[in-house]
């Protein structure tokens, strides 16, 4: 029992780091692809669209197996953790890019025109005017994506990454118990996703409190 628990706790560590790394990668990629999707340069726009459609269209599961089993044949040897972070980061980055695009589009033209009038350059516009307002709109969908990403980390167990799910399977194989390991990890997953959700809600309240929601003209 104690041994089983310590195995599962070691899995928890892996799941948490995998979630943090892939969330970070997904966030960076979301902004790059989301802003690329809105670029005036048609080549950049096409590249962003191709990336988004490709990663949303081919199942995450396929991407993970591709990263782990096919890339080594092309000379790119990845550890299970690296393959999982890449697949999760790029897959959720594609969904996140659409969130970024939609949120930025929701900011009225007047804000952009105001920036032009103030002679701000592109990065100043985004940094000081557009993104601070868009982020309030982005938070709820980003929160949902973060919870979904956490749940998806379980599939990394299938490429032998020793995360919660993998360790639970290990306990099942070693002890023959089935209900206990799975019940424990389900409660842990549920606790982490509840924690993520309440964190996002707190951020929403903080950011929403001192910034009035931009008027969404129909």
């Amino acid at each position: 029992m104690v041994e089983s628990l310590s195995l599962i706790l070691r899995g928890l560590q892996t799941t948490v780091s995998l979630t943090i790394f892939s969330l970070t990668l997904a966030l960076v990629v979301s902004f790059l692809a989301g802003l690329g999707r809105l670029s005036k340069n048609s080549a950049v726009r096409a590249a962003a669209i191709a990336y988004i459609e490709f990663f949303r269209g081919t199942s995450l599961f396929v991407q993970l197996f591709w990263a782990f089993y096919v890339l080594p044949f092309m000379g790119v040897e990845l550890s299970p953790m690296q393959a999982a972070v890449l697949a999760l980061g790029f897959n959720y980055g594609a969904y996140g890019a659409e969130v970024v695009r939609a949120s930025i589009n929701a900011i009225g033209r007047d804000q952009w025109e105001g920036c032009v009038a103030l002679n701000l350059n592109y990065f100043q516009r985004l940094r000081h005017v557009i993104i601070p307002q868009a982020i309030v709109i982005m938070l709820p969908p980003f929160g949902n994506l973060a919870v979904t990403l956490l749940k998806s980390t379980a599939i990394a167990s299938l490429i032998a990454l020793p995360d919660l799910t993998y360790q639970a399977q290990l306990v099942r194989n070693q002890t023959g118990q089935t209900l206990l390991p799975f019940a424990i990890i389900m409660i842990i997953y549920f606790a982490i996703s509840t924690f993520l959700k309440s964190g996002i809600q707190l951020a929403e309240r903080r950011l929403g409190a001192d910034r009035t929601q931009p008027a969404r003209s129909a």
């Binding site: 749940k151 379980a154 599939i155 799975f182 389900m186 997953y189 549920f190 996703s193």
Partner: peptide, 21 residues
Amino acid sequence: DFIRGTPLLVQLYVLFFVLPN
């Protein structure tokens, strides 16, 4: 909320490995 907050893969394992018990 519980079903939504836990991974599908683990739920599949429960259906497939725990229910036979």
